[in-house]
Design a protein around this nucleic acid. Structure first.
Lengths: 226, 226
DNA sequence: TCAAAAGTGTTGAGCGTACACCCATGC
DNA sequence: GCATGGGTGTACGCTCAACACTTTTGA
Protein backbone atom coordinates (compact mmCIF):
# COMPACT_ATOMS: atom_id res chain seq x y z
CA UNK A 1 0.00 0.00 0.00
CA UNK A 2 2.73 2.40 -0.98
CA UNK A 3 0.88 4.65 -3.37
CA UNK A 4 -1.05 7.29 -1.49
CA UNK A 5 -3.25 10.14 -2.70
CA UNK A 6 -5.18 13.00 -1.13
CA UNK A 7 -8.43 11.85 -2.73
CA UNK A 8 -9.57 8.29 -3.48
CA UNK A 9 -9.17 7.02 -7.04
CA UNK A 10 -10.96 4.38 -9.05
CA UNK A 11 -8.87 1.56 -10.49
CA UNK A 12 -8.43 1.81 -14.26
CA UNK A 13 -8.55 -1.21 -16.54
CA UNK A 14 -8.82 -1.98 -20.23
CA UNK A 15 -10.88 -4.79 -21.78
CA UNK A 16 -10.80 -5.86 -25.39
CA UNK A 17 -13.50 -7.39 -27.55
CA UNK A 18 -11.71 -9.40 -30.25
CA UNK A 19 -13.79 -10.66 -33.15
CA UNK A 20 -12.74 -13.51 -35.41
CA UNK A 21 -14.42 -15.66 -38.03
CA UNK A 22 -14.30 -19.44 -38.40
CA UNK A 23 -16.67 -22.19 -39.49
CA UNK A 24 -18.90 -19.56 -41.04
CA UNK A 25 -19.50 -17.96 -37.66
CA UNK A 26 -18.34 -14.71 -36.13
CA UNK A 27 -16.86 -15.31 -32.72
CA UNK A 28 -15.47 -13.47 -29.71
CA UNK A 29 -12.40 -14.37 -27.71
CA UNK A 30 -13.09 -14.93 -24.01
CA UNK A 31 -10.98 -16.09 -21.10
CA UNK A 32 -12.10 -18.06 -18.12
CA UNK A 33 -11.35 -16.34 -14.85
CA UNK A 34 -8.92 -18.22 -12.61
CA UNK A 35 -9.67 -16.31 -9.41
CA UNK A 36 -12.40 -14.35 -7.66
CA UNK A 37 -14.56 -12.48 -8.24
CA UNK A 38 -16.56 -14.40 -10.84
CA UNK A 39 -14.11 -17.32 -10.61
CA UNK A 40 -14.78 -19.77 -13.42
CA UNK A 41 -16.91 -17.26 -15.35
CA UNK A 42 -15.94 -16.22 -18.82
CA UNK A 43 -14.80 -12.65 -19.35
CA UNK A 44 -13.13 -10.35 -21.84
CA UNK A 45 -9.33 -10.29 -21.89
CA UNK A 46 -8.08 -7.21 -20.08
CA UNK A 47 -6.45 -5.86 -16.96
CA UNK A 48 -4.96 -2.90 -15.17
CA UNK A 49 -3.36 0.02 -16.96
CA UNK A 50 0.28 0.63 -16.05
CA UNK A 51 1.37 4.20 -15.30
CA UNK A 52 3.79 4.45 -18.20
CA UNK A 53 1.70 3.05 -21.03
CA UNK A 54 -1.08 4.53 -23.12
CA UNK A 55 -4.51 2.98 -22.94
CA UNK A 56 -4.26 1.29 -26.31
CA UNK A 57 -0.85 -0.15 -25.44
CA UNK A 58 -2.28 -1.50 -22.21
CA UNK A 59 -5.02 -3.26 -24.12
CA UNK A 60 -2.47 -4.74 -26.53
CA UNK A 61 -0.24 -5.91 -23.70
CA UNK A 62 -3.05 -7.54 -21.74
CA UNK A 63 -4.31 -9.27 -24.86
CA UNK A 64 -0.83 -10.59 -25.51
CA UNK A 65 -0.27 -11.72 -21.94
CA UNK A 66 -3.60 -13.44 -21.57
CA UNK A 67 -4.07 -14.98 -24.99
CA UNK A 68 -0.83 -14.67 -26.96
CA UNK A 69 -2.63 -12.72 -29.67
CA UNK A 70 -0.92 -9.65 -31.03
CA UNK A 71 -2.88 -7.18 -33.06
CA UNK A 72 -2.54 -3.62 -34.16
CA UNK A 73 -5.73 -1.87 -35.17
CA UNK A 74 -7.23 -1.71 -31.73
CA UNK A 75 -9.97 0.86 -31.69
CA UNK A 76 -11.51 2.45 -28.63
CA UNK A 77 -15.12 1.43 -28.07
CA UNK A 78 -16.50 3.02 -24.91
CA UNK A 79 -15.59 3.57 -21.28
CA UNK A 80 -17.65 1.78 -18.67
CA UNK A 81 -17.66 3.42 -15.28
CA UNK A 82 -20.83 2.47 -13.39
CA UNK A 83 -20.14 2.75 -9.68
CA UNK A 84 -20.80 -0.90 -8.86
CA UNK A 85 -19.74 -2.70 -12.00
CA UNK A 86 -17.01 -4.49 -10.02
CA UNK A 87 -18.06 -5.95 -6.64
CA UNK A 88 -14.65 -5.37 -5.05
CA UNK A 89 -14.26 -1.66 -5.56
CA UNK A 90 -14.72 1.12 -8.07
CA UNK A 91 -13.19 0.08 -11.37
CA UNK A 92 -13.45 2.08 -14.57
CA UNK A 93 -12.74 0.17 -17.73
CA UNK A 94 -11.88 1.47 -21.18
CA UNK A 95 -13.12 -1.07 -23.72
CA UNK A 96 -11.35 -1.71 -27.02
CA UNK A 97 -12.40 -3.44 -30.20
CA UNK A 98 -10.40 -5.50 -32.69
CA UNK A 99 -10.87 -7.67 -35.77
CA UNK A 100 -8.38 -10.47 -36.40
CA UNK A 101 -7.76 -12.71 -39.39
CA UNK A 102 -8.00 -16.50 -39.16
CA UNK A 103 -4.20 -16.88 -39.08
CA UNK A 104 -4.11 -14.61 -36.02
CA UNK A 105 -6.75 -16.54 -34.15
CA UNK A 106 -4.46 -19.17 -32.62
CA UNK A 107 -3.91 -18.43 -28.94
CA UNK A 108 -2.02 -19.76 -25.99
CA UNK A 109 -3.51 -19.81 -22.53
CA UNK A 110 -2.32 -17.09 -20.19
CA UNK A 111 -0.23 -17.42 -17.08
CA UNK A 112 -3.02 -16.99 -14.61
CA UNK A 113 -4.51 -20.51 -14.77
CA UNK A 114 -7.03 -19.13 -17.21
CA UNK A 115 -8.51 -20.91 -20.14
CA UNK A 116 -9.27 -19.10 -23.40
CA UNK A 117 -11.79 -19.92 -26.13
CA UNK A 118 -13.57 -18.53 -29.14
CA UNK A 119 -17.36 -18.32 -28.73
CA UNK A 120 -19.80 -17.81 -31.56
CA UNK A 121 -21.64 -14.53 -31.11
CA UNK A 122 -24.82 -16.56 -31.34
CA UNK A 123 -23.91 -18.53 -28.26
CA UNK A 124 -22.17 -16.35 -25.70
CA UNK A 125 -22.08 -17.69 -22.14
CA UNK A 126 -22.96 -15.76 -19.02
CA UNK A 127 -20.15 -13.28 -18.45
CA UNK A 128 -18.38 -11.67 -15.50
CA UNK A 129 -18.96 -8.02 -14.56
CA UNK A 130 -20.84 -5.99 -17.17
CA UNK A 131 -18.98 -7.67 -20.02
CA UNK A 132 -22.23 -8.65 -21.71
CA UNK A 133 -23.03 -4.96 -22.10
CA UNK A 134 -19.58 -4.33 -23.52
CA UNK A 135 -20.06 -7.05 -26.09
CA UNK A 136 -23.49 -5.72 -27.02
CA UNK A 137 -21.96 -2.37 -27.78
CA UNK A 138 -19.14 -4.02 -29.72
CA UNK A 139 -21.64 -5.90 -31.87
CA UNK A 140 -23.40 -2.68 -32.75
CA UNK A 141 -20.06 -1.14 -33.67
CA UNK A 142 -19.18 -4.22 -35.71
CA UNK A 143 -22.32 -3.78 -37.82
CA UNK A 144 -21.61 -0.10 -38.30
CA UNK A 145 -18.03 -0.80 -39.36
CA UNK A 146 -19.25 -3.42 -41.79
CA UNK A 147 -21.81 -1.11 -43.36
CA UNK A 148 -19.81 2.11 -43.44
CA UNK A 149 -16.22 0.94 -43.67
CA UNK A 150 -16.64 -2.40 -45.43
CA UNK A 151 -14.59 -3.88 -42.58
CA UNK A 152 -15.61 -7.47 -43.35
CA UNK A 153 -12.40 -8.35 -45.17
CA UNK A 154 -10.47 -7.78 -41.96
CA UNK A 155 -11.87 -11.06 -40.67
CA UNK A 156 -10.62 -13.01 -43.71
CA UNK A 157 -7.19 -13.99 -45.01
CA UNK A 158 -5.51 -11.36 -47.20
CA UNK A 159 -6.74 -13.28 -50.22
CA UNK A 160 -10.36 -14.27 -50.21
CA UNK A 161 -13.30 -15.01 -52.46
CA UNK A 162 -16.46 -12.99 -52.83
CA UNK A 163 -18.44 -15.91 -51.51
CA UNK A 164 -16.47 -15.89 -48.28
CA UNK A 165 -16.91 -12.15 -47.94
CA UNK A 166 -20.63 -12.40 -48.49
CA UNK A 167 -20.92 -15.04 -45.78
CA UNK A 168 -19.27 -12.60 -43.35
CA UNK A 169 -21.81 -9.95 -44.16
CA UNK A 170 -24.62 -12.42 -43.74
CA UNK A 171 -23.28 -13.64 -40.39
CA UNK A 172 -22.84 -10.14 -38.97
CA UNK A 173 -26.05 -8.66 -40.31
CA UNK A 174 -27.92 -11.88 -39.59
CA UNK A 175 -29.74 -11.91 -42.90
CA UNK A 176 -29.19 -13.40 -46.31
CA UNK A 177 -28.11 -11.17 -49.17
CA UNK A 178 -28.63 -11.32 -52.90
CA UNK A 179 -25.47 -12.60 -54.56
CA UNK A 180 -25.61 -10.44 -57.66
CA UNK A 181 -26.37 -7.22 -55.80
CA UNK A 182 -23.67 -7.98 -53.26
CA UNK A 183 -21.00 -8.50 -55.90
CA UNK A 184 -22.07 -5.42 -57.81
CA UNK A 185 -21.87 -3.27 -54.71
CA UNK A 186 -18.55 -4.63 -53.43
CA UNK A 187 -16.83 -4.56 -56.79
CA UNK A 188 -18.32 -1.12 -57.42
CA UNK A 189 -16.27 0.23 -54.52
CA UNK A 190 -13.25 -0.11 -56.74
CA UNK A 191 -11.07 -1.33 -53.90
CA UNK A 192 -10.87 -5.02 -54.72
CA UNK A 193 -8.12 -6.42 -56.91
CA UNK A 194 -8.83 -9.68 -58.68
CA UNK A 195 -5.76 -11.88 -58.38
CA UNK A 196 -4.68 -14.15 -61.17
CA UNK A 197 -4.90 -17.15 -58.85
CA UNK A 198 -8.02 -19.07 -58.17
CA UNK A 199 -8.91 -21.08 -55.12
CA UNK A 200 -8.49 -24.72 -56.16
CA UNK A 201 -9.37 -28.10 -54.73
CA UNK A 202 -12.89 -27.08 -53.92
CA UNK A 203 -15.71 -29.42 -54.92
CA UNK A 204 -17.18 -26.91 -57.34
CA UNK A 205 -16.10 -24.25 -59.79
CA UNK A 206 -12.86 -22.53 -58.64
CA UNK A 207 -13.61 -19.02 -57.39
CA UNK A 208 -11.44 -16.01 -58.14
CA UNK A 209 -9.33 -14.70 -55.25
CA UNK A 210 -9.40 -11.01 -54.42
CA UNK A 211 -7.42 -8.70 -52.19
CA UNK A 212 -8.68 -5.48 -50.62
CA UNK A 213 -6.77 -2.29 -51.34
CA UNK A 214 -7.20 -0.39 -48.10
CA UNK A 215 -5.30 2.68 -49.24
CA UNK A 216 -7.56 3.05 -52.21
CA UNK A 217 -10.58 2.73 -49.94
CA UNK A 218 -9.31 5.52 -47.67
CA UNK A 219 -8.87 7.75 -50.69
CA UNK A 220 -12.35 7.02 -51.97
CA UNK A 221 -13.69 7.91 -48.56
CA UNK A 222 -11.92 11.26 -48.58
CA UNK A 223 -13.27 12.05 -52.02
CA UNK A 224 -16.78 11.29 -50.85
CA UNK A 225 -16.54 13.88 -48.11
CA UNK A 226 -15.32 16.67 -50.33
CA UNK B 1 -2.61 11.54 1.54
CA UNK B 2 -4.99 9.11 3.21
CA UNK B 3 -5.96 6.95 0.28
CA UNK B 4 -3.35 4.27 -0.32
CA UNK B 5 -3.15 1.49 -2.89
CA UNK B 6 -0.79 -1.38 -3.66
CA UNK B 7 -0.25 -0.14 -7.22
CA UNK B 8 -0.19 3.44 -8.51
CA UNK B 9 -3.33 4.78 -10.15
CA UNK B 10 -3.93 7.51 -12.70
CA UNK B 11 -6.28 10.30 -11.73
CA UNK B 12 -9.63 10.15 -13.50
CA UNK B 13 -11.41 13.22 -14.81
CA UNK B 14 -14.29 14.08 -17.11
CA UNK B 15 -14.37 16.94 -19.62
CA UNK B 16 -17.38 18.09 -21.58
CA UNK B 17 -17.63 19.70 -24.99
CA UNK B 18 -20.84 21.73 -24.99
CA UNK B 19 -22.04 23.10 -28.30
CA UNK B 20 -24.49 25.97 -28.65
CA UNK B 21 -25.71 28.20 -31.46
CA UNK B 22 -26.04 31.98 -31.47
CA UNK B 23 -25.58 34.77 -33.99
CA UNK B 24 -25.63 32.21 -36.77
CA UNK B 25 -22.51 30.56 -35.37
CA UNK B 26 -21.93 27.27 -33.63
CA UNK B 27 -19.93 27.78 -30.48
CA UNK B 28 -18.24 25.87 -27.69
CA UNK B 29 -18.32 26.67 -24.00
CA UNK B 30 -14.88 27.17 -22.46
CA UNK B 31 -13.64 28.23 -19.06
CA UNK B 32 -10.54 30.16 -18.23
CA UNK B 33 -8.31 28.32 -15.80
CA UNK B 34 -7.83 30.13 -12.49
CA UNK B 35 -4.78 28.16 -11.33
CA UNK B 36 -1.82 26.18 -12.64
CA UNK B 37 -1.10 24.39 -14.79
CA UNK B 38 -2.08 26.39 -17.86
CA UNK B 39 -3.24 29.26 -15.65
CA UNK B 40 -5.15 31.78 -17.73
CA UNK B 41 -5.56 29.36 -20.63
CA UNK B 42 -8.97 28.38 -21.85
CA UNK B 43 -10.09 24.80 -21.30
CA UNK B 44 -13.10 22.53 -21.38
CA UNK B 45 -15.28 22.42 -18.28
CA UNK B 46 -14.54 19.29 -16.28
CA UNK B 47 -12.90 17.84 -13.21
CA UNK B 48 -12.28 14.83 -11.05
CA UNK B 49 -14.70 11.93 -10.81
CA UNK B 50 -16.03 11.24 -7.31
CA UNK B 51 -16.08 7.67 -6.07
CA UNK B 52 -19.84 7.45 -5.72
CA UNK B 53 -20.97 8.95 -9.02
CA UNK B 54 -21.13 7.53 -12.52
CA UNK B 55 -19.02 9.12 -15.22
CA UNK B 56 -21.92 10.89 -16.87
CA UNK B 57 -23.11 12.26 -13.54
CA UNK B 58 -19.62 13.55 -12.86
CA UNK B 59 -19.64 15.39 -16.16
CA UNK B 60 -23.04 16.89 -15.37
CA UNK B 61 -21.96 17.96 -11.92
CA UNK B 62 -18.75 19.59 -13.10
CA UNK B 63 -20.58 21.40 -15.84
CA UNK B 64 -23.09 22.68 -13.30
CA UNK B 65 -20.44 23.73 -10.81
CA UNK B 66 -18.25 25.49 -13.31
CA UNK B 67 -20.79 27.10 -15.57
CA UNK B 68 -24.25 26.79 -14.04
CA UNK B 69 -25.48 24.93 -17.08
CA UNK B 70 -27.59 21.85 -16.52
CA UNK B 71 -28.18 19.45 -19.35
CA UNK B 72 -29.31 15.91 -19.76
CA UNK B 73 -28.35 14.22 -23.01
CA UNK B 74 -24.67 14.03 -22.32
CA UNK B 75 -23.12 11.50 -24.60
CA UNK B 76 -19.73 9.86 -24.19
CA UNK B 77 -17.23 10.93 -26.82
CA UNK B 78 -13.85 9.28 -26.21
CA UNK B 79 -11.39 8.63 -23.42
CA UNK B 80 -8.05 10.39 -23.59
CA UNK B 81 -5.26 8.67 -21.75
CA UNK B 82 -1.90 9.61 -23.24
CA UNK B 83 0.76 9.25 -20.57
CA UNK B 84 1.87 12.88 -20.56
CA UNK B 85 -1.30 14.73 -21.42
CA UNK B 86 -1.21 16.46 -18.02
CA UNK B 87 2.18 17.86 -16.94
CA UNK B 88 1.55 17.20 -13.24
CA UNK B 89 0.89 13.50 -13.29
CA UNK B 90 -0.96 10.78 -15.18
CA UNK B 91 -4.54 11.87 -15.74
CA UNK B 92 -7.04 9.95 -17.81
CA UNK B 93 -10.04 11.92 -18.97
CA UNK B 94 -13.38 10.68 -20.25
CA UNK B 95 -14.74 13.29 -22.63
CA UNK B 96 -18.46 13.99 -23.05
CA UNK B 97 -20.47 15.80 -25.66
CA UNK B 98 -23.64 17.89 -25.36
CA UNK B 99 -25.90 20.12 -27.43
CA UNK B 100 -27.80 22.89 -25.69
CA UNK B 101 -30.61 25.17 -26.82
CA UNK B 102 -30.25 28.96 -26.78
CA UNK B 103 -32.31 29.28 -23.59
CA UNK B 104 -29.85 26.95 -21.83
CA UNK B 105 -26.82 28.89 -22.92
CA UNK B 106 -26.82 31.46 -20.10
CA UNK B 107 -24.10 30.64 -17.60
CA UNK B 108 -22.70 31.88 -14.34
CA UNK B 109 -19.01 31.86 -13.61
CA UNK B 110 -17.81 29.07 -11.35
CA UNK B 111 -16.39 29.31 -7.87
CA UNK B 112 -12.77 28.89 -8.78
CA UNK B 113 -12.07 32.41 -10.04
CA UNK B 114 -12.69 31.12 -13.51
CA UNK B 115 -14.23 33.00 -16.35
CA UNK B 116 -16.50 31.27 -18.86
CA UNK B 117 -17.30 32.18 -22.46
CA UNK B 118 -18.80 30.88 -25.68
CA UNK B 119 -16.32 30.72 -28.56
CA UNK B 120 -17.28 30.30 -32.18
CA UNK B 121 -15.91 27.04 -33.52
CA UNK B 122 -14.28 29.13 -36.23
CA UNK B 123 -12.24 31.02 -33.68
CA UNK B 124 -11.14 28.77 -30.87
CA UNK B 125 -8.22 30.03 -28.74
CA UNK B 126 -5.18 28.03 -27.76
CA UNK B 127 -6.31 25.50 -25.17
CA UNK B 128 -4.90 23.80 -22.10
CA UNK B 129 -3.82 20.14 -22.10
CA UNK B 130 -4.95 18.17 -25.18
CA UNK B 131 -8.32 19.89 -25.23
CA UNK B 132 -7.87 20.95 -28.83
CA UNK B 133 -7.77 17.29 -29.80
CA UNK B 134 -10.90 16.64 -27.78
CA UNK B 135 -12.73 19.44 -29.56
CA UNK B 136 -11.55 18.17 -32.95
CA UNK B 137 -13.07 14.81 -32.20
CA UNK B 138 -16.25 16.46 -30.94
CA UNK B 139 -16.59 18.42 -34.17
CA UNK B 140 -16.35 15.24 -36.19
CA UNK B 141 -19.00 13.68 -34.00
CA UNK B 142 -21.16 16.78 -34.37
CA UNK B 143 -21.14 16.43 -38.14
CA UNK B 144 -21.96 12.74 -37.91
CA UNK B 145 -24.86 13.42 -35.56
CA UNK B 146 -26.14 16.10 -37.87
CA UNK B 147 -26.00 13.87 -40.93
CA UNK B 148 -27.21 10.61 -39.39
CA UNK B 149 -29.43 11.72 -36.53
CA UNK B 150 -30.61 15.11 -37.79
CA UNK B 151 -29.44 16.51 -34.45
CA UNK B 152 -29.47 20.12 -35.65
CA UNK B 153 -32.77 20.98 -34.01
CA UNK B 154 -31.22 20.32 -30.61
CA UNK B 155 -29.34 23.59 -30.97
CA UNK B 156 -32.54 25.57 -31.61
CA UNK B 157 -35.56 26.50 -29.48
CA UNK B 158 -38.32 23.88 -29.39
CA UNK B 159 -40.12 25.86 -32.07
CA UNK B 160 -38.07 26.93 -35.03
CA UNK B 161 -38.26 27.78 -38.70
CA UNK B 162 -36.79 25.83 -41.56
CA UNK B 163 -34.57 28.76 -42.39
CA UNK B 164 -33.00 28.63 -38.93
CA UNK B 165 -32.50 24.90 -39.21
CA UNK B 166 -30.85 25.23 -42.59
CA UNK B 167 -28.44 27.83 -41.20
CA UNK B 168 -27.37 25.32 -38.54
CA UNK B 169 -26.61 22.71 -41.17
CA UNK B 170 -24.67 25.23 -43.19
CA UNK B 171 -22.66 26.36 -40.16
CA UNK B 172 -21.76 22.82 -39.07
CA UNK B 173 -21.06 21.42 -42.52
CA UNK B 174 -19.39 24.66 -43.57
CA UNK B 175 -21.09 24.79 -46.94
CA UNK B 176 -24.22 26.34 -48.36
CA UNK B 177 -27.19 24.14 -49.16
CA UNK B 178 -29.98 24.38 -51.68
CA UNK B 179 -33.12 25.67 -49.98
CA UNK B 180 -35.62 23.54 -51.89
CA UNK B 181 -33.69 20.32 -51.55
CA UNK B 182 -33.08 20.96 -47.88
CA UNK B 183 -36.77 21.47 -47.15
CA UNK B 184 -37.75 18.44 -49.19
CA UNK B 185 -35.32 16.24 -47.32
CA UNK B 186 -36.11 17.51 -43.84
CA UNK B 187 -39.89 17.47 -44.32
CA UNK B 188 -39.56 14.07 -45.99
CA UNK B 189 -38.33 12.63 -42.71
CA UNK B 190 -41.88 12.94 -41.46
CA UNK B 191 -40.74 14.07 -38.04
CA UNK B 192 -41.51 17.76 -38.22
CA UNK B 193 -44.87 19.14 -37.16
CA UNK B 194 -45.93 22.45 -38.67
CA UNK B 195 -47.40 24.57 -35.88
CA UNK B 196 -50.33 26.87 -36.51
CA UNK B 197 -48.27 29.84 -35.30
CA UNK B 198 -45.93 31.81 -37.42
CA UNK B 199 -42.89 33.78 -36.37
CA UNK B 200 -43.97 37.44 -36.49
CA UNK B 201 -42.24 40.79 -36.32
CA UNK B 202 -39.63 39.85 -38.84
CA UNK B 203 -38.84 42.26 -41.67
CA UNK B 204 -40.07 39.83 -44.32
CA UNK B 205 -42.73 37.20 -44.86
CA UNK B 206 -43.58 35.40 -41.57
CA UNK B 207 -42.11 31.89 -41.58
CA UNK B 208 -43.98 28.83 -40.32
CA UNK B 209 -42.78 27.42 -37.00
CA UNK B 210 -42.10 23.71 -36.69
CA UNK B 211 -41.37 21.32 -33.84
CA UNK B 212 -39.39 18.11 -34.09
CA UNK B 213 -41.07 14.89 -33.00
CA UNK B 214 -38.18 12.94 -31.58
CA UNK B 215 -40.20 9.84 -30.73
CA UNK B 216 -41.38 9.56 -34.29
CA UNK B 217 -37.79 9.91 -35.47
CA UNK B 218 -36.65 7.06 -33.22
CA UNK B 219 -39.38 4.85 -34.62
CA UNK B 220 -38.47 5.69 -38.20
CA UNK B 221 -34.89 4.76 -37.38
CA UNK B 222 -35.91 1.37 -36.03
CA UNK B 223 -38.01 0.66 -39.10
CA UNK B 224 -35.08 1.51 -41.32
CA UNK B 225 -32.92 -1.15 -39.69
CA UNK B 226 -35.44 -3.98 -40.05
C1' DT C 1 -24.41 -37.36 -63.51
C1' DC C 2 -24.94 -34.99 -59.56
C1' DA C 3 -24.17 -31.71 -55.89
C1' DA C 4 -22.48 -27.25 -54.73
C1' DA C 5 -21.08 -22.96 -55.26
C1' DA C 6 -19.40 -19.46 -59.03
C1' DG C 7 -20.54 -16.24 -62.06
C1' DT C 8 -23.47 -12.96 -64.73
C1' DG C 9 -27.74 -8.24 -66.48
C1' DT C 10 -31.86 -5.93 -66.65
C1' DT C 11 -35.64 -3.36 -64.93
C1' DG C 12 -38.27 -0.29 -61.87
C1' DA C 13 -38.54 2.64 -57.77
C1' DG C 14 -36.81 5.91 -54.74
C1' DC C 15 -33.37 9.40 -53.56
C1' DG C 16 -30.21 13.27 -54.19
C1' DT C 17 -29.05 17.21 -57.10
C1' DA C 18 -29.45 21.05 -60.01
C1' DC C 19 -31.95 24.95 -60.96
C1' DA C 20 -35.46 30.17 -60.86
C1' DC C 21 -39.23 32.61 -59.66
C1' DC C 22 -43.09 34.86 -56.98
C1' DC C 23 -44.73 36.05 -52.07
C1' DA C 24 -45.33 38.39 -47.67
C1' DT C 25 -43.65 41.67 -44.45
C1' DG C 26 -41.37 45.79 -42.20
C1' DC C 27 -39.16 49.85 -43.01
C1' DG D 1 -41.03 50.53 -53.42
C1' DC D 2 -37.43 48.01 -51.80
C1' DA D 3 -34.80 44.83 -49.19
C1' DT D 4 -35.07 40.49 -46.96
C1' DG D 5 -35.84 36.00 -46.38
C1' DG D 6 -40.15 32.55 -47.20
C1' DG D 7 -41.99 29.39 -49.93
C1' DT D 8 -42.62 26.28 -54.10
C1' DG D 9 -41.80 21.95 -58.65
C1' DT D 10 -39.54 19.46 -62.27
C1' DA D 11 -36.16 16.69 -64.61
C1' DC D 12 -32.09 13.91 -64.58
C1' DG D 13 -28.78 10.55 -62.90
C1' DC D 14 -27.50 7.30 -59.52
C1' DT D 15 -28.11 3.74 -56.27
C1' DC D 16 -30.71 -0.02 -54.41
C1' DA D 17 -33.74 -4.18 -54.72
C1' DA D 18 -35.88 -7.80 -57.08
C1' DC D 19 -35.27 -11.60 -59.86
C1' DA D 20 -33.08 -16.98 -62.75
C1' DC D 21 -30.12 -19.34 -65.34
C1' DT D 22 -25.62 -21.31 -67.02
C1' DT D 23 -20.81 -22.77 -65.73
C1' DT D 24 -17.21 -25.23 -63.52
C1' DT D 25 -15.35 -28.58 -60.55
C1' DG D 26 -14.74 -32.78 -57.55
C1' DA D 27 -16.75 -36.82 -55.97
Amino acid sequence: MNYCYTYPRPALTVDTVVFGYQNEEVSVLLIQRGGPPFQGHWALPGGFVEMDENLENAAQRELWEETGIRTLNLEQLHTFGEVSRDPRERVVSVAYFALVRPNQMAFRTGSDAEDARWFSIKNIPSLAFDHDRIISKALIRLREKLLHEQAGFKLLPKEFTLGQLQKIYEAILDQSLDKRNFRKKILGLGCLTALSKKLESVPHRSPILYSFDEQRFQKMDEIKFS
